[in-house]
């Protein structure tokens, strides 16, 4: 899932500026699971905004709203009424939701309430860990399902580096060395010798630095074009 953190109230207040009518829209998907942007967190932000306005002698109206998810146009059409009413919408979705909502409602001001951080999983109640960098060229079959791109501080493909100490990373003694984990896992699977092969330099053209990526399923995309023609 996509993991995010909420922005500080100061940052959010700066973003909404002198807006009198504000809608806070929750996303009930990934960011609900990581306790950043779901209905409850949207309620907390809305409540904070009302209290902040009262404390600072401002008169603003804050509405709360939620969608099943913000990353599909079908759901975002439910925003029409709220956006017509509001001066600004604070999206409690990840960056995908903010992008898509802004694209579908270009005349309306939509600002992010969250900082989108990573693709991760729940490690324990209240803690989420990054698991995937979305690099577009997955090597997990070679590393026992442990991503060296995000779980190794240096993203190296032939580890460990010299900074691995007692199974921990030199960057943070609390962080396990991903390559130590990879070695242990492959050895446990009887595949330790697989690591003798040198992994060539990674093809980063599949990653995010080459501009906006897209995925197209040709037959479906063409069908849509025909339907809209």
């Amino acid at each position: 899932m996509i993991v995010a953190d909420r922005k500080s109230l100061d940052d959010i207040v700066d973003m909404i500026g002198d807006a009198d009518k504000v809608v806070v829209s929750a996303c009930n998907a990934c960011v609900t699971v990581c306790l950043a942007g779901g209905r409850r967190e949207a309620g907390i932000l809305a409540s904070q905004l009302r209290i902040h306005a009262k404390e600072h002698g401002k008169d603003i109206e804050v509405r709360e709203h939620s969608l099943a998810r913000h990353c599909d146009a079908e759901f975002l059409s439910d925003l029409d009424e709220e956006l017509e009413w509001a001066d600004v919408m604070i999206s409690m979705a990840c960056g995908v939701g903010v992008n898509l909502a802004s694209e579908l409602h270009p005349k309306h001001r939509i600002v992010p309430g969250l900082n989108t951080t990573f693709y991760g999983a729940t490690d324990a109640p209240g803690r989420w860990l990054e698991m995937c960098g979305g690099c577009g060229d997955c090597v997990l079959h070679k590393t026992g399902g442990i991503c060296p791109i995000v779980r190794c501080a240096k993203s190296i493909l032939n580890g460990p580096c010299g900074g691995s100490q007692d199974g921990k990373c030199e960057v943070d003694p609390e962080t396990p060395c991903a390559w130590q984990e990879i070695i242990e896992r492959l050895e446990a699977q009887g595949r330790g010798d697989d690591l003798i092969a040198v992994e060539p330099a990674k093809d980063w053209t599949t990653s995010f630095s080459g501009g906006r990526r897209r995925r197209v399923v040709e037959e479906i995309y063409e069908e849509d074009e025909e339907a809209s023609a």
């Binding site: 100061d10 907390i44 904070q48 209290i51 902040h52 009262k54 404390e55």
Partner: peptide, 8 residues
Amino acid sequence: ALLDETGA
């Protein structure tokens, strides 16, 4: 902590 952010 949340309330402190608001100044209340």
